[in-house]
Design a protein around this nucleic acid. Structure first.
Lengths: 336, 336
DNA sequence: CTTGGATGCTCAATCGGTGTAGCATAGATT
DNA sequence: AATCTATGCTACACCGATTGAGCATCCAAG
């Protein structure tokens, strides 16, 4: 009994297994990591060791293995939030694809705080990740520098950077198409042809700029000019968007381009708070299964997460020259 | 130049820094991990080492540190999905609280696949996590056994187990209250007093059973019996729920208790697909900001994620006797 | 009987930090 | 002068797994 306790009190190591099996630690190691044939261990011994490992509930000590091996087989991702379907889908696809490739995925969420992004990236490097996917970072280039100093490949996702390859949506085309749909629906439903409002995001970030460009291009096509006051970009926060909506004087027959589902939360709350909500239509960049059914919604621009991630993994597997930005088309989902 | 390359070609170790500083690796180590005062290193040397570490872009090798230290300071969580606000909030709170406690959070999502749950738990143990939070697991007890064999504490979250402490919502009370609200709203809006439908979840899982108990109790209060056919539990999948909805013959004046936002996706899609959607009301266990605004919704039962997680961390910090299940009250959010 | 090759295993160095034990020097105390 | 204490540092044995090098043993061929 005392002996049994001794054995299970600490997690068994290959040395413990070796002693039980009456063999050496190297034999145990090679059996448990699959290199035993190459190392000419007999099938008989291999089987005995495997059985004992099973019995003892052995689990390899990964930090020890990582210390010794040149490759850690850990792949990291930093991501801003888990509060919307887009980032949720990115996280799930990332984990699945990493596992398919025999990698151990580690994700950490950075709450859209630039300091936390940098700190998290540093932690990932300390963890000896082989590669870091930097999702929606405020300042991807600082992180890319950190990574290149540590000889770790970095890939930007969602928001591009200039010092590492990037995979982003084709925001311009997506915004162009979405804006066209909203404009035509507003005309069809209300007979109006007013410039739309643009709500959400940050004027500094690349995606917002690109979408604003598509938004503007669609207006130009339609012979409309967008007044500067029609654009409200108070960051990725429902509360801030809501608080600022009052300034917009959205009237009957208006149309709104909503730049994220988070901003849409603010818009929907605002609409609901109005004693006489205006007759209006909106479209949203990013998809949400419930928002899709809201009565004023004309459709949602869904980003192609699966393709974005398989592209990112391709970039990891065959690193390109320089820091190209690959654009992935979005898929418009009209109101069901 | 060649020298510079030599230095940056591999990530610097404390030995590299020691050589540059003309001191020993132990001095470097103690300076960089903050134990240098205790080890009587002079402030002058400490500062010099810090400067050199900074210059060289040194980052500690965590696997090496973990190998040597008795504590890894890594805390793990497995979670089924990232596709709803509840699990998203759990993941975010977990990461924040872990960081506040100086722990490194590692989350992995298991796609509701029992095999993946077990595999992920094994990986976490190999990673030398100090503790594992098992969220919404199909078979938490198997994981608890794995953990106790490895002398790692496990805490069940969301779904309880019998072999490790659990933190769950007070599903009975929550369901009781939600059912009362739906019944009274159906009566007020339609003048009907029919038993409600119960949609979503798995009959085997504890939360669904508890909620069904609350649902039934509220019906008993109201002098109603629930026909068995009113309950549809086809798992946590919108598609399966949708496919099965047809059997239910939901008529005007009906009320529905929806057991998760995932099931609600199915319900909403079904409603939308009907040529003549029935006049009905529903309430949902779990909250979603967009679903909250759906016209038939009477309110959502939001689980108190912050309290659940701080309770879980308390259980980690002061382990209780046995495997108690702590119930956290939910908060009802009426339709805004 | 010797040589050669295959077979089946073990030894020991190594990865990068950590921390105990201990050494050398300087100044203070008896 | 001898002892003591404090200061400032280094040496070295670990943690657990990996892996190149090497040691027996056995059988077959010459």
């Amino acid at each position: 009994m005392a002996d049994d306790d001794e054995i299970t009190a600490k997690r068994p190591t290959i040395y413990d297994l070796a002693q039980i099996a009456g063999t050496s630690a190297s034999a145990v190691s090679s059996v448990l990591n699959g290199t035993w044939k190459k190392r000419r261990i007999s099938a008989r011994l291999a089987e005995r060791i495997s059985r004992i490992a099973e019995e003892q509930g052995y689990a390899v000590n990964l930090p020890a293995r990582m210390l010794r091996r040149d490759r850690s087989r850990v792949i990291g991702m930093i991501i801003p939030k888990y509060d919307n379907r887009y980032f949720g889908a990115i996280a799930e696809h990332f984990e699945t694809m990493a596992r398919e490739r025999g990698l151990f995925p580690v994700i950490t969420c950075t709450q859209r705080e630039p300091d936390l992004e940098l700190e998290a990236a540093r932690e990932m490097l300390s963890y000896q990740v082989e590669c870091l996917i930097v999702t929606g970072a405020t300042d991807p280039d600082r992180i890319a520098d950190l990574c290149s100093a540590a000889r770790v490949r970095a890939i930007n996702l969602d928001l591009p950077g200039s010092r590492a390859p990037s995979v982003v949506s084709d925001n311009f085309s997506g915004a162009l198409e979405l804006t066209r749909v909203i404009l035509s629906r507003v005309r069809a439903d209300f007979g109006t042809a007013l410039p739309l409002y643009f709500i959400g995001g940050r004027a500094q970030d690349n995606n917002t700029r690109e979408r604003l460009r598509g938004f503007t291009a669609a207006h130009v096509e339609a012979g409309l000019a967008v007044p500067e006051d029609n654009c409200l970009m108070r960051g990725y926060s429902a509360a801030k968007t809501l608080a600022a909506m009052a300034d917009l004087k959205i009237a009957d027959g208006s149309g709104v381009f909503v730049n994220s589902t988070i901003a849409l939360e603010g818009v929907v709350r605002w609409l609901h708070d109005q004693p006489n909500p205006p007759q209006m239509r909106f479209g949203c960049f990013d998809w949400d299964p419930f928002a899709a059914f809201l009565p004023q919604n004309v459709g949602m621009m869904q980003q192609d997460v699966a393709t974005m991630l398989s592209t990112a993994f391709q970039l990891i597997e065959t690193p390109p020259e320089g820091a190209p930005t690959l654009q992935i088309p979005c898929r418009f989902r009209p109101r069901p």
